[in-house]
Amino acid sequence: MEPISRFGGNIKSVVHRREKKTKLGLVPVTVVLEIGDRGRFRKILSELRAQGVKITHVGEKEELSERVVLMAGRMGVEDLREITERINRKGGARISDMRLSMGKEEMAVRLRLNGKDERTLEEALSLLEKVAEERGLLLVKALEERS
């Protein structure tokens, strides 16, 4: 459990499934945890594997891949609707959360993107980059973390 707490994970439950012990005598364990970002989650998985833990199943795929991104500039609600539609039309990724903040003349928006895997998220981010360039918006991506 140490790697989970070290990287800021919050353990919700731990279930030892002794009735499903393997032929080698290993006990399957189901751990449910909460963690704020994908990078740290990857670090936990990698650390557990390094310690010899065999990870057989990792949650729901869709919940695995997440990116936070910010956009800012002169835009309105119609622009946000179009951005959402373009992401949805592309498929594979969706905007799971959107927060707005209005300045004097410009708007800033924070988007949380979820995707079925890293590739679809990268594609969605490329689409956002294209939109930002077309409309002269600032796009602030999260720091790429080591995988």
Binding site: L70, S101, M102, G103, E106, A108, V109, R110, V140, L143
Partner: peptide, 22 residues
Amino acid sequence: RVTPEVIRLAHEAGFAVKLVGT
């Protein structure tokens, strides 16, 4: 083009905005 709104939204989600070279 970084505004106080951008910084606030970032901070609420657990991020700082930094000028990063790669």
